[in-house]
């Protein structure tokens, strides 16, 4: 459901990775690797949040380059740091994501928000929310529109224990019908999601092997 081929990215002439290729079927996958190796960049590229220097990405069979709207309609992305306007309210973020995905915030998303303790915080601006609460809103937004691919960058960071458990359970659940790829250094969280661990170094070695 998520595939990429010959992805290459460099920053200021320094290559971060070159020729990355892989295909993820339905399921939950935890991307692991050393700090600064390029996990966040890869996730951002797969989500279309960042441009690759070369290569192609397919989301549920749709090319992110050739059919960007169709591909993005099928994916959800949660970055590590909150990118949301400080003046925007949590409820507005959910309404906005639903509006651009041409859907509505369905009861299951409201239920998730309530379970994460966000019900009373819908009208509070992002700038006045804690990091963990901002993350919870972004995670709720990821469930809008029943995406086929979920890309989550360090999703358990800043979350309290109850929220981590709830998120892990929801990821296991959604993994039965969608592809979930997340980066994490949190071994307990990865185990709780039942994710298959994918080593970034392994992806790099695979790419180098292809070149060889």
């Amino acid at each position: 459901m998520l595939a990429f081929d010959h992805l290459t990215k460099a920053y200021g002439g320094t290559p971060l990775f070159a020729g990355l290729r892989h295909a993820f079927p339905t399921g939950v996958f935890a991307l692991q690797g050393a700090n600064g190796i390029g996990k966040s960049t890869l996730l951002a590229i797969l989500a279309g949040a960042q441009e690759a220097d070369a290569g192609a990405v397919w989301v549920a069979g749709k090319s992110l380059h050739a059919e960007p709207m169709a591909a993005r309609a099928r994916l959800a992305y949660v970055p590590d740091a909150s990118p949301v306007y400080p003046f925007m309210q949590g409820g507005e973020l959910l309404a906005f994501v639903a509006a651009v995905k041409r859907t509505e915030v369905r009861p299951e998303v409201w239920a998730l928000a309530e379970a994460l303790g966000l019900a009373g915080l819908m009208a509070r601006p992002f700038g006045k929310l804690s990091l963990g609460t901002q993350k919870k809103f972004l995670l709720c937004a990821a469930w809008i529109g029943a995406p086929s691919v979920l890309l989550l960058d360090e999703p358990s960071n800043a979350l309290d224990q109850a929220a981590r458990q709830l998120l892990a359970a929801r990821l296991r659940e959604v993994g039965s019908r969608a592809t979930v790829l997340f980066s994490s250094h949190d071994a307990a969280f990865v185990a709780a999601t039942g994710a298959e661990v994918v080593s970034f170094e392994g992806l790099l070695a695979e790419a180098q092997g292809d070149e060889g």
Binding site: A44, A47, G48, A49, Q50, P68, M69, A70, R72, A73, L75, A76, Y77, P79, P83, V84, Y85, V97, V100, K101, R102, L151
Partner: peptide, 12 residues
């Protein structure tokens, strides 16, 4: 600041 996130959404 929201540009990157917006790029992952199905908007022009």
């Amino acid at each position: 600041p929201m540009g990157h996130y917006l790029a992952s959404l199905p908007v022009s």
